[in-house]
């Protein structure tokens, strides 16, 4: 019985080609670091593409360890391209990746709407975690603006819809 359930679960797994995964990660980091350079795309930094890719990849991998490793790698990559201390985004995205992968074990996350709801909630978690670490570890008195965070969450949710639909085209059923 257990074997049959496992087979059903694995049969439902869709894998993304490795080069697409790496391309998505690098592309997200690149755009996150590159787009804000242009005056016409000064609002690009309001979209956390590495977070969206972390969630997407972690949801594909139904292994919490792989999910946290994905988050760890993307977070450290984001830290390395920023001027802040390395590890800040790494910790947050590690947790996000872990949570996402863990959720796949209890939730059906194949539907786009479910994933977008997860993005909405996890963006809040991400921002709250980031704010907490800033205050606790870095002693930075940043203010948590709920309304702005909500608007940014909705914006990221919207962007995630396009990004996820685009990446879903490359998914392969195994």
């Amino acid at each position: 019985m257990q074997a049959s359930v496992k087979q059903l679960i694995e049969a439902d797994i869709n894998r993304l080609p490795v080069w697409i995964s790496w391309g998505a990660v690098i592309g997200a980091l690149l755009l996150q670091a590159y787009l804000p350079l242009f005056p016409s795309s000064s609002y690009a930094n309001t979209v956390d593409l590495p977070l969206l890719i972390t969630i997407y990849l972690a949801l594909l991998r139904r292994s919490p360890i792989i999910g946290l490793l994905i988050g760890l790698g993307i977070g450290l990559g984001q830290d390395s391209l920023s001027h802040g201390p390395i590890g800040l985004y790494g910790i947050i995205k590690t947790v996000i990746g872990y949570v996402c992968s863990s959720l796949t074990l209890v939730l059906a996350v194949e539907s786009l709407s479910t994933r977008l709801v997860l993005v909405l909630g996890l963006y809040f978690v991400h921002q709250a975690f980031f704010w907490s670490l800033q205050r606790v570890l870095l002693s930075q008195g940043a203010e948590f603006v709920w309304r702005r965070t909500l608007l940014l969450a909705l914006l990221n949710c919207l962007i995630a819809g396009f990004v996820y639909r685009f990446l879903d085209r490359f998914r392969q059923r195994i």
Partner: peptide, 22 residues
């Protein structure tokens, strides 16, 4: 508790890294 242990190790390592930097 392999998953949560790995998470704790990863977070702890990064906290150490942060502490080292800060």
């Amino acid at each position: 508790y392999r998953n949560i242990t790995t998470l704790a190790v990863a977070i702890f390592a990064q906290l150490l890294l942060l502490g080292y930097q800060i």
